[in-house]
């Protein structure tokens, strides 16, 4: 299989004030893969994720050097609104807006000027179906999203991201607050999205990365220690630190 690179970073340095949390990172992400990113706290995983759609810049103290190439071009040439539409994100704790289920999903399309009511309903339905939430909520789309369970809320967030038709979906520890059953549902969903989306999963849970990802990257203190096929990384890591981490000696 020839792997087509969809997004890559070249010598990427990410700093808040003078504190550089990612150092000369070079990483390639292939089209339609699930890339797991593991590592202990403060290893720069989330910063990597949020660098890809420039969310880091919401913090005024943030600065960055190096390049991020998306579909052959530097992401700097895209306006934030277009870039973030193409590279969506699902946050750690389920974060729904205090509006109805329907309006949560329809929010993205609405800001991208989809005004037709039928078209919106169509988008909401397909997005919820892709996120495997449709069957559970189709009769109560007007219900406040805050009333859903944690797992449902997280899948709603995923549907909301899917509704703007991204190419890449970033997950920032998506199951950290969820029970095992909800976690399984989210993981199932990710597997089924594999055909059409590139997915990057940052997780604290090494087992989850082993279950879900095709390739896996291990970050430590702002460095990319190792990246390899998930099987190889977990069974036969090249670096001793990777071995220490996945066998639970630290982190």
């Amino acid at each position: 299989m020839v792997n087509e690179v969809i997004i890559q970073t070249i010598d990427l340095n990410c700093c808040f004030e003078k504190n550089c949390v990612l150092k000369s990172l070079n990483i390639d992400v292939y089209k339609n893969e699930i890339l797991g990113v593991i590592g202990p706290a403060n290893s720069g995983k989330s910063t990597f994720l949020r660098a890809l759609n420039r969310l880091n810049y919401l913090d005024p103290s943030y600065s960055q050097t190096g390049e991020i190439i998306f579909e052959g071009k530097d992401i700097g040439i895209l306006p934030d609104s277009i870039l973030r539409r193409k590279i969506g994100i699902v946050f750690a704790m389920p974060q729904v807006l205090p509006v109805s289920i329907f309006n949560n999903v329809a929010y993205g399309p609405k800001v991208h000027d989809v005004k037709d009511k039928n078209r919106l309903e169509e988008i909401v339905e397909t997005s919820l179906q892709k996120a495997h939430l449709w069957e559970e909520v189709k009769d109560r789309l007007d219900m406040p999203a805050m009333k859903l369970s944690g797992g449902q809320q997280q899948r709603l967030c995923l549907a909301r991201t899917l509704a703007v038709e991204p190419d890449i979906i970033l997950y920032d520890e998506p199951c950290s607050g969820l029970d095992p059953i909800s976690t399984a549902k989210v993981e199932d969903t990710m597997q089924q999205l594999k055909e059409n989306y590139t997915q990057i999963l940052v997780t604290n849970n090494t087992k989850q990365a082993a279950r879900v990802s095709g390739r896996c990257a291990f970050f430590l203190m702002g460095d990319l220690v190792e990246i390899d096929d998930t099987d190889t990384l977990f069974t036969n890591p090249r670096d001793g630190r990777t071995n220490d981490y996945i066998t639970g000696r630290f982190g």
């Binding site: 969310l55 919401l58 934030d80 277009i82 973030r84 946050f91 974060q95 929010y107 703007v164």
Partner: peptide
């Protein structure tokens, strides 16, 4: 987080302020 959600979906700053 409301602002972050909205911006992450590709909303502009003003859209975020007005809607979220």
């Amino acid at each position: 987080s409301f602002r972050e959600i909205s911006l992450s979906l590709g909303a502009t700053k003003w859209q975020t302020i007005r809607n979220c």
